[in-house]
Amino acid sequence: MELILVILIGLLYASGIYMMLRRSMVKMIIGLILLGNGANMLIFLLGRIVKGKPPIIDSAEKVFQDIYADPVPQALILTAIVISFGLQSFAIILVKRAYKVVKTDDLDALNSTDEIYD
């Protein structure tokens, strides 16, 4: 399980960075989404994958009697997913808007802000 996840995370990061290096704005957004998903999976993996019970103590007990899954990575991933949901929907709208204003999908065409004299 860990090995599959490691390969998956590597693929997500690699393809995310590859897509970001394209010149198209849409592919750049896809790359960012893949990179974000890779990071979420990494939290999941590095929080140690444990087959066991949910981390809830029975009302009869005082401490954990059994092996349990760490709840913190799940909370972190949930937070990160919600945040990236907002950021990505913003980025998609922004790219759409940019396409309307600049009339191109080519990132290299966005160079008017770098001119020295204006």
Binding site: M20, L32, L35, G36, A39, L94, R97, A98, V102
Partner: peptide
Amino acid sequence: IEGSIKYVTMNLLASAIFLT
């Protein structure tokens, strides 16, 4: 819009690296 495309991309990338 042009400026913000650059700003948004770099900041999203920074967040992904920070999260990693």
